Computed example of a mutant assay.
Amino acid sequence: MIKILYIGRHAEILETVVRLLNVNEEWLGIGASTDEEALEMFSKYDFTLVLLGCGIEEESEHLLITAFRNLKPDIVIIQHYGGGSGLLRNEITSALEVG
């Protein structure tokens, strides 16, 4: 099972992306809306991939990426700005092939 952490600041988008992630039976999508929640989830689960949604401030993004890489240097981290389930699936599969 591929565990994916989606971090997003907008509740409706977060809910939608997590729902889309969990449509794929091989993926477990978990969402977080705050830095604290994201860091807590990251320490709890062995994530393969982190998706950074829109609305995350540059300072928070830097803090999160640094923390994630310190805990798991090989973690795959990509930006996701929306675009529907097909784009999301392609972004993830491409990132996992490269990462």
Score class of each variant (00 low, 15 high):
1 M>P: 09
1 M>T: 12
2 I>L: 14
3 K>T: 13
4 I>K: 02
6 Y>H: 13
8 G>E: 11
9 R>N: 13
9 R>G: 13
10 H>D: 09
14 L>F: 03
15 E>F: 06
16 T>Q: 12
18 V>E: 06
19 R>E: 05
21 L>M: 08
21 L>I: 05
22 N>S: 03
22 N>C: 03
25 E>P: 00
26 E>D: 14
28 L>I: 09
33 S>M: 13
34 T>M: 05
34 T>H: 07
35 D>M: 08
36 E>T: 09
36 E>K: 09
39 L>A: 06
40 E>I: 03
40 E>R: 10
41 M>C: 13
43 S>R: 13
43 S>F: 01
49 L>C: 09
49 L>Q: 04
53 G>E: 02
53 G>I: 06
55 G>W: 07
55 G>M: 08
56 I>Q: 10
57 E>C: 12
58 E>L: 08
60 S>R: 12
60 S>I: 02
61 E>Q: 14
62 H>N: 15
69 R>N: 15
71 L>Q: 15
72 K>T: 09
73 P>H: 13
73 P>T: 14
73 P>V: 12
74 D>A: 15
77 I>K: 03
77 I>D: 08
80 H>Y: 15
81 Y>N: 11
82 G>P: 00
84 G>M: 04
89 R>N: 11
89 R>K: 14
94 S>I: 01
95 A>V: 09
97 E>D: 10
97 E>Q: 10
97 E>F: 02
